[in-house]
Computed example of a mutant assay.
Amino acid sequence: MAFVKVCGRSDVAEGEALKLDQFAIPIALFNVDGKFFATQDRCTHGEWSLSDGYLDGDVVECSLHMGKFCVRTGKVRSAPAKGALRTFAVRVEGDEVFVDFDAAAATP
């Protein structure tokens, strides 16, 4: 699959997340200091939407049971999260944000 336009850059304010559930895989798109990161939207512990969580830098905290994940890598940062999040490659062109649902994000 190729990159798919998911939204405009201005649709996600810095330090915020946007739930994108109109695609085959619901994703959470995060804006961390002007850089965009996409993960699966569901927490690996409680089947809860991470886009409704709390973003602190590049860590999102699930609002259901407070598990934490790095949005850059998908790695668990605190329990009770059970496993890493699936991440997706993101590309920004001008004011448009694109996600490749088949390509994992490059890890820093």
Rank of each mutant, 00 (worst) to 15 (best):
T44P: 03
R86A: 10
Y54N: 13
E96D: 15
F23W: 12
G67S: 14
N31L: 06
K35A: 13
G46E: 15
E61G: 09
I25K: 15
T73L: 06
D41Q: 01
R9K: 15
E96H: 07
L50N: 03
G67K: 08
F3E: 13
E47Y: 13
Q40G: 03
R9W: 01
D100K: 02
A105Q: 15
Q22R: 14
V32H: 09
D102V: 11
L18E: 07
T39R: 02
C43V: 03
W48M: 12
T39C: 04
A84I: 06
G8H: 09
G53A: 06
F98I: 02
P80D: 10
A106S: 12
T39A: 01
P108W: 11
G67N: 10
G8Q: 12
P80Q: 10
H65F: 05
V12D: 07
A13L: 14
T44C: 03
A2R: 15
E16A: 10
A38H: 01
A28L: 03
L64M: 14
C62S: 06
T73P: 01
A28M: 11
A106Y: 01
A38D: 00
T39P: 00
L55A: 07
I25N: 08
F88T: 07
V4D: 09
A89H: 09
G83S: 12
A103K: 15
A84Y: 03
A104T: 11
F3K: 10
D102I: 04
K82C: 12
V60D: 04
D58C: 10
S10T: 10
A103E: 14
L85I: 01
G57F: 03
M66W: 14
G74Q: 05
K5L: 04
T73C: 02
L50G: 04
G46W: 04
G15H: 07
A13R: 14
L64F: 13
D100I: 05
A106F: 03
D95M: 00
V6S: 01
P80F: 09
V92C: 11
K82M: 14
Q22D: 12
I25E: 15
L20E: 02
A104D: 15
C70N: 15
A105T: 04
G57C: 03
T44A: 01
E93Q: 08
